[in-house]
Amino acid sequence: MLPTDASADTGTVPAAAPGTDTRPCGDTDHEDTLDLRLPDAFLESCARNEAPAATRPAAGDDLLDRVAAWGPAVTAAGVFHLVPVRIERDLPLVSRWMNDPAVAAFWQLDGAPGVTEAHLRTQLDGDGRSVPCVGVLKGTPMSYWEIYRADLDPLARHYPARPHDTGIHLLLGDAADRGRGLGSLLLRAVADLVLDRRPACARVVAEPDLRNTPSLAAFLNAGFRFSAEVDLPAKRAALMVRDRRLRHLL
């Protein structure tokens, strides 16, 4: 997927210091990610409701186990919610964030609102493997997130992906929220939400740019471990992993 650099405090995962590219693959946008199709046979069997019972999702589920229903995370900074994006409500705010030079350097979605809208619609009109969200802290929208199936993303071509690996991209909208540890706090909270709400997921992954030292520090402080360096289409990245079995140790 796209960004994954959390601004060190992750102002963005993008997270680079001031802005943070949280685009996973260092891609320039999610189009590449979302062009990756699920096997036709799988899609057809789901449409006929004929998938094996062990793999068929329950009615109402999606590829990410209904992010909208994950509920709140209680953090030291206050109650935090991931709220799936609605274009008509959230586009002005997300587009403004994308036009912050510190964010634009990594996400490359600056410009007219239509640029951000196209990026969001690619996900919203897709099959549910990537869910764009606004992060709401104590009732205030303050960050943008992408929760995605890393095992179904082009990122999976660049590392030994496992079924249900789940990726995170993040950007903190306001400069005042960056550089004070908030990114690490929220990354940990969201990674915990993923592991709590997605029982089939054993790992949460991210791929910040290796040059983005604030982002790397944010992930490490959030309980992720450095796994490998990977060459992605638009950057050399650090593969960061938060393992379910180590979550209480890191």
Rank of each mutant, 00 (worst) to 15 (best):
D29Y: 09
P113C: 09
D192Y: 07
A54S: 09
F226V: 14
P101G: 01
G11K: 03
A51V: 01
A41Q: 00
A200N: 06
A104Q: 09
V131G: 09
D100Q: 10
R86Q: 11
A156P: 05
G183I: 01
R66V: 14
V85Q: 03
V230R: 08
A47P: 00
A69T: 15
P113N: 08
Y159E: 05
A102H: 01
D29M: 08
D65R: 14
A41R: 00
H81T: 05
P92E: 14
L171T: 09
A112Y: 02
A59S: 10
A58Q: 09
N99M: 11
F80Q: 01
A51G: 05
D5W: 13
S184T: 07
L187G: 02
D29H: 11
R178Y: 08
R86V: 11
L210M: 15
W97V: 09
G135F: 03
P199M: 09
L36V: 14
T20M: 02
D32L: 15
A54D: 12
G181D: 09
E44T: 01
P113S: 09
L246Q: 14
D100S: 13
V194I: 12
G11H: 07
K235E: 08
D125P: 00
E146I: 01
D209L: 10
M1S: 14
R236H: 10
D177T: 08
H169I: 06
P160N: 05
